[in-house]
C-alpha cells in the first residue's frame, strides 16, 4: 500500500480499519486487554500510544535512513528501534508525571509497558519492510495508533456495559473479554475488501 498510489484517504482507512493493529495484525494485545476496563483510561492509553507510535515512526525511520543504511548496519534495526522506543517512552512517562499526573496514575504499570508494546516496534519494522518514505512512515504510525485507539475504546465501552450485565459464571472476567475481542476481530475482517 503506497500513499502515492491510493491517496491519503484510502491510506488512512487501510491503517485504521483494514489492517487494524489489534484485530488484524494482533499486535499490542497486552494494553488492549489490560487498560480497557474504563473508557477514560483507555482513551488516555490510546493517545499515549498514538503519541509514542507517531514519534517512534519518525525517529526510527530517520535513524534507519541516515544512520543505519549509510553504515550498512541494517541488521541492527531491531535493537536500535527498541532503544529508541524505550527512550521515547521514558520521555513520555516523565512528561506525563509532571503534566498529567491523574492519567499517569490511571495508566500505572501499562505506561512503561508501552516500551515492550509490540505494536510500537511492529510499526517501526513494518515501515522499513514496506519501504515507506518519511511521510508514509509517520502517517502509518499515527493512523495505526488511531486504529489501536478505536479498538481499545470500543472494547472499553463494551466492558463497561459488561459490568452490569448478567454473565454466566464461567465466562466472567477475562474469558468474556477474550470472546468479545474475538468477535470484534471477526467484525473487522469485514473491512478487508475495502482497500485493494
Amino acid at each position: 500500500m503506497r500513499l502515492s498510489e491510493v491517496g491519503f484517504f484510502l491510506f488512512m482507512i487501510d491503517c485504521i480499519l483494514t489492517n487494524n493493529y489489534i484485530f488484524s495484525r494482533f499486535l499490542g494485545c497486552c494494553p488492549f486487554l489490560g487498560v480497557s476496563s474504563k473508557v477514560e483510561t483507555s482513551i488516555g492509553m490510546g493517545l499515549a500510544v498514538t503519541f509514542v507510535m507517531g514519534l517512534a515512526s519518525l525517529f526510527t525511520w530517520t535513524v534507519y535512513e541516515f544512520l543505519l543504511i549509510p553504515l550498512k548496519l541494517e541488521y541492527l534495526s531491531t535493537i536500535a528501534f527498541i532503544f529508541i522506543i524505550a527512550a521515547l517512552v521514558q520521555f513520555v512517562e516523565m512528561f506525563m508525571k509532571k503534566s498529567l499526573p491523574a492519567l499517569y496514575s490511571a495508566l500505572g504499570i501499562y505506561l512503561p509497558l508501552i516500551t515492550t508494546n509490540c505494536a510500537v516496534l511492529g510499526v517501526a519494522l513494518l515501515n522499513i519492510n514496506s519501504n515507506y518514505g518519511l511521510l508514509e512512515s509517520v502517517l502509518n504510525g499515527v493512523f495505526g495508533a488511531l486504529g489501536f485507539l478505536l479498538a481499545i475504546v470500543m472494547m472499553a465501552g463494551v466492558r463497561e456495559r459488561l459490568e452490569t450485565s448478567d454473565i454466566p459464571k464461567p465466562f466472567r472476567g477475562f474469558s468474556i473479554s477474550l470472546v468479545i475481542a474475538g468477535m470484534m476481530a471477526v467484525a473487522f475482517l469485514g473491512f478487508k475488501g475495502l482497500v485493494k
Binding site: V63, L67, L68, L71, L73, L76, F83, I84, F91
Partner: peptide
Amino acid sequence: YAILALGALGVVFGVVL
C-alpha cells in the same frame, strides 16, 4: 561502526533524558 552507532544513540538519548 556498529558499536559506535549504538553507543552514539545511547549517549544522545541519555543526555536528552
